[in-house]
């Protein structure tokens, strides 16, 4: 057995506190009333207003038109996050499958072209993208929110590298077993890529969930608002002597935190199990 080294533990404990305390503060503070928060600052102890605050946040008809509730925003964020993650996985898997298993001319060249788009952030092409969506009449729609961001060089790259690591004999065995390109993809490659898909799902879900600029550009109707925009809105009411609803902002932030946490926890388990179990 290793001797317990106190110094190592202190570092670990400090690190854990550094990561966890802000989250704890957010959770605790959200259970107090806005006035208390305004007077006393942040809390580390639970308050008595939890049920009320969260209920308000989830169900109150807010916004300019009174059309949007916290629940709608949560739904929108989920649609965006899941749509992103699933769409990206499907698209980049299809692209990688074509690049790796079908010998067509310039495949490598095409791959590198796709790959170099990694270097371009969304912000660079945000105006042309907006223009295209606008001409297609897709502003204020889920399609417009999701589709333009689906092409993923990262995902294509990961899947390509993964497919390349699958032994050729597996393809040959499948060919002899009478599996065509479709069957090989569905029966062999997709089950083998589970771990890869879990990893990409985590990354892409969080990426989609955290989108702020793109949804703000694409949607003007409040029923398409995502959680990220909702938080911003609550804090933007500082007019005259009105106190911003800090408790609601914190509650919304906590709500915004939960789905990514759940996704990471669930898929990470799957991801790690896949890593330790599989031998190709």
């Amino acid at each position: 057995m290793n001797r317990i080294k106190p110094f190592d533990h202190i570092i670990l404990i400090l690190g854990t506190l550094f990561m966890c305390v802000p989250v704890l503060v957010a959770v605790m503070t959200s259970t107090h009333s806005a006035v208390d928060i305004h007077m006393n600052g942040l809390y580390l102890t639970p308050g008595d207003n939890a049920v009320g605050t969260y209920q308000t946040v989830l169900t109150r008809q807010g916004g300019f038109t009174g059309q949007v509730t916290g629940l709608t925003m949560l739904m929108n964020s989920l649609i965006l996050g899941i749509g992103f993650a699933v769409g990206k996985i499907v698209l980049s898997m299809a692209a990688a499958y074509a690049l790796v298993y079908f010998r067509f001319r310039f495949a490598t060249f095409l791959f590198w072209i796709i790959f170099t788009t990694l270097l371009l952030p969304l912000e660079v092409r945000i105006m042309p993208s907006y223009q295209v969506m606008s001409s297609l009449g897709l502003l204020n729609s889920y399609t417009g929110l999701i589709v333009p961001l689906l092409a993923s060089a990262t995902g294509t790259f990961y899947f390509r590298q993964f497919f390349k690591s699958v032994p050729d004999e597996l393809l040959e065995a499948a060919r002899i077993d009478g599996a065509g390109p479709w069957k090989f993809l569905i029966d062999i490659l997709i089950p083998l890529s589970k771990t890869m898909m879990a990893a990409i799902f985590i990354i892409m879900f969080v990426y989609g969930w955290n989108q702020y600029l793109w949804p703000m550009l694409m949607t003007t109707e409040e029923r398409f608002f995502t959680l990220m925009r909702g938080i911003k809105q609550i804090l933007q009411v500082w007019i005259g002597s009105q106190i911003p609803d800090y408790n609601e902002a914190f509650a919304l932030a906590v709500l915004a935190l939960l789905p990514p946490v759940i996704v990471v926890v669930v898929f990470q388990r799957w991801f790690i199990r896949g890593l330790t179990e599989s031998d190709k």
């Binding site: 032994p167 004999e169 597996l170 040959e172 002899i176 077993d177 062999i188 083998l192």
Partner: peptide
């Protein structure tokens, strides 16, 4: 698939899943 043969590979090539 239509040659009516079966093959055994050096690294077995079993479907791991």
């Amino acid at each position: 698939a239509d040659r009516d043969i079966a093959m055994v590979f050096q690294n077995y090539a079993l479907y791991p899943h």
